[in-house]
Design a binder for these strands. Structure first.
Lengths: 209, 209, 209, 209
DNA sequence: AATGAATGAGAGTTCATTCAT
DNA sequence: AATGAATGAACTCTCATTCAT
């Protein structure tokens, strides 16, 4: 089994400091990448927005691409964290799923720009790190698969085991849809209406007799 | 009402030649952009792959970004054309919709890389052309809205008029899902299985009593 | 003794046509060079403004620099022609000189931009043609030298022969001064005031007891 | 009141270093511009002649045109400095004027190529800096105006106040004449002869009864 | 650990000139 | 004699990365 994270070498020894500085880098780079894109953002800009010099930036990363990896990893982590925070495991699987869906769509809404960023710049990730980023996403899908299986076991959800993954994928995609197509969707729906409608669509699939 | 296309100025006068050369450019650039991404592809590579010199390339475009616009426009046009070709208007709305869904998913499958390209490089489009590209997509959604309305009128589809757009959006997104998440989906489904499953999901929504 | 003009080879045989086309070229190029400068004007622009294609342009010249030579030569010729046209050889040398000065300053005023052009782009002339252009200027100085000598002989002008050339040079320079420094001079003098003042200055030198 | 100089932004922070490097740039560029002209000199040549890389060059300027501005500004400054150094304020206005004229003509002679350069490349100056360069020239004219007024007040120079500016302009032009027409003038005069002759011409104007 | 001046390969773009038609 | 599409050398400028301090 592969590592969860790719280790990026640093010239600095103190791990605490590395983490602190990399947090600064990510925070600065996210904003820059969102507004200008990865390629149009310069390392100088990243350093400046991070609050230190270009030389210092390169004490904590090896290349500009490393910054993109740190950024993508951090965004995925945040999505996952926010989602997990919102989960309650009170009630049966169906009930949990409803809450999880609501939470997930809301997180997608709040993190719109960040999620979009990941999809647009994936190709620029340092070779070898793409798999790390994809694994993050499977992690999130795993959350929903788990919930679905909980529901199957407690009898609140009716779905064939072999369709669990597609179901979970559908959930992720409907969440991403709100991210990708918001310019079109927001003309006709508020977030809450969207949540309600898509939840109904998904539940019809899994609660039928 | 806005124009359908943006006119890109050319130093060459013969419109036939312009079209021919731009076709060459698009064909070459699509492959390059898919494999290397827009930013990592150089204008020299585009020229060489197109079969002429860098000077000639710039007789037909004004900037590298213009190539991206031509590429995105051509891909959308191809999606739309392939979809329209596959449409038969025999039978009622529901029947047409089924066939359209099958065709659409197949086109998405065949044009996987190209569709992915559009989503990843949209941000790099020359300012002002993004709206032209988005309009292309609405065109495709319009096809499905039309089919849905046909079905509503002939009684084969039951859906509230105000949800027609969301329905159409869902269709597009499920198509794009096959593009974006194929690496995960193909582990468990063939294209045909995916089509069947997702069609069933969508139809449950619109054919219910 | 050298030729008066440099022969520029042409692919076209008919001398009449060559002259006609080169007149078109010069007329177009003068305006372009004045407004944009020689280097910032493209051969395409020259061809277009001349009323024919870039290919045709190169039937009548061998290089862009040739156009500059044609332009400079034409401007000098025009200065000389206008000056000669205005000359009357009635009266004594002093009288003729006064009229010649007046005419010269007026020509400089009217041809301001063109004269400025020559001075600014001389360095870009094709190597070997600079001498042709300078000779043109000596021609004009020769006119004044001749007038001065006429005056010396008829006794209306008192000046040592060895200062005739400096005197003629001074005249040319005071004319060019109106060209080069008009932005400053025009704040305080009209052309006529300038002519009067500078003529007085020059005459004091040559009419003194 | 406008600033005396245009501030050119630099990526380097240390002002001392900026000044040092820009001095290197100017020194190198002056020679190149004199021999090849501004347009035929490449930025790489400037960098190389300055003793550093093209990247370093662009740490101290924003564009090639900036180099031209720095060059023109430096030349004007040098003219002014050399002239001021040579001025002694012993004696009456007339005496001072004579010395100033001698100094000015000598400076023009020594800086021949440089002064020529300014006149030939003015058109290529970055838009907005021309006024800065012109102001430099007025500064020099101001020196002569001041001397003339000193002479008027102490009674050694007789000239109407309203002709002070034209007089000063004439002085500048006679200086520039030695620059522009030296190829012709040097056939007949040494610098010292020229100074003597032109001084006599000017003084006749202002010392007459 | 932090700085920032220096580097130079490489990018997009221009344009004088050619030559087949 | 006229056309204009094609060429490619050469230009200005950028920016990720290094390294002496």
């Amino acid at each position: 089994m592969l590592e969860k994270k790719k280790k990026i070498p640093s010239l600095v020894k103190d791990p605490k400091l590395i983490e602190k500085r990399r947090d600064q880098i990510v925070e600065a780079a996210v904003e820059l990448f969102i507004h200008k894109g990865f390629h149009k953002t310069t390392t100088r800009e990243i350093a400046k927005a991070s609050g230190f010099s270009i030389g210092t930036l390169y004490e904590y990363i090896e290349s500009k691409e490393d910054v993109l990896y740190l950024v993508c990893d951090a965004i995925h982590a945040e999505v996952e964290n926010r989602l997990r925070e919102a989960l309650t495991f009170n009630g049966n699987g169906l009930r949990i799923l409803k809450m999880a869906l609501r939470s997930f769509f809301r997180v997608m809404d709040q993190m719109n720009d960040r999620v979009l960023l990941i999809y647009q710049e994936t190709k620029s990730l340092p070779s070898g790190t793409i798999s790390y980023v994809l694994r993050r996403e499977e992690e999130i899908r795993g959350i929903f698969e788990e919930i679905l299986r909980t529901g199957i076991q407690d009898g609140s959800i009716h779905i064939d085991e072999k369709h669990v993954q597609l179901m979970a994928d559908n959930i992720l995609v409907l969440g991403e849809m709100w991210v990708f197509r918001r310019w079109a969707l927001r003309k006709h729906y508020t977030l809450e209406e969207y949540i309600e409608k898509q939840t109904a669509l998904l539940l019809r699939e899994i609660t039928e007799k």
